[in-house]
């Protein structure tokens, strides 16, 4: 099964809005159902997903049945929002890149997930995502992740 890659520009006041915008794009593309975004928000509150790399990124995701197509939606924000860090309860990152990951059946996607984590922690690749035209990002992500 092939993966869907989406990329959108946006503005958000906080992480919850950022996740919601990703969810709307994923839903419009037929990748997820209604339960996915609330599950991501709930999970983010308990277990945040901000990564303190040189170019900080957040990778909100959740395990739900409501994923129809494996997909990644990159939201590129005009201004950074605060995401709490995955490895720390009281520290946060300010990030302009939010990558909402919808993956079902994860055990069959180990390679994909490994590549994806390699990509989001690779500052050069994330700098490229900041710089390139938004419509070029889905193809770029497909190329560097797969």
């Amino acid at each position: 099964m092939s993966n869907t890659y989406l990329a959108i520009n946006g503005e958000a006041d906080n992480w919850e809005e950022a996740i919601t915008q990703c969810g709307e794009a994923l839903k419009a593309a037929g990748c997820i159902g209604d339960a996915f975004t609330p599950a991501c928000i709930k999970r983010e509150k308990e277990f945040p997903t901000g990564l303190p790399s040189d170019v900080p990124v957040a990778i909100p995701h959740s395990k739900t049945e409501d994923i129809f197509k494996n997909a990644v939606c990159l939201l590129r924000l005009k201004k950074p929002v605060k995401f709490y860090r995955m490895d720390s309860d009281d520290e946060y990152v300010n990030t302009r890149l939010v990558m909402n990951i919808a993956i079902n059946d994860n055990d069959n996607h180990v390679d994909f997930l490994q590549h994806l984590m390699g990509v989001v922690t690779d500052s050069e690749k994330m700098e490229n995502c900041m710089a390139m035209p938004i419509e070029a990002i889905p193809g770029y992500l497909a190329q560097i992740i797969e």
């Binding site: 999970r43 395990k63 990951i101 993956i103 994860n106 997930l113 490994q114």
Partner: peptide, 15 residues
Amino acid sequence: ACGSGVATSTVAQES
């Protein structure tokens, strides 16, 4: 173990 048992635990498990 990770927050949702999906992404990071899968990657960490392989490592």
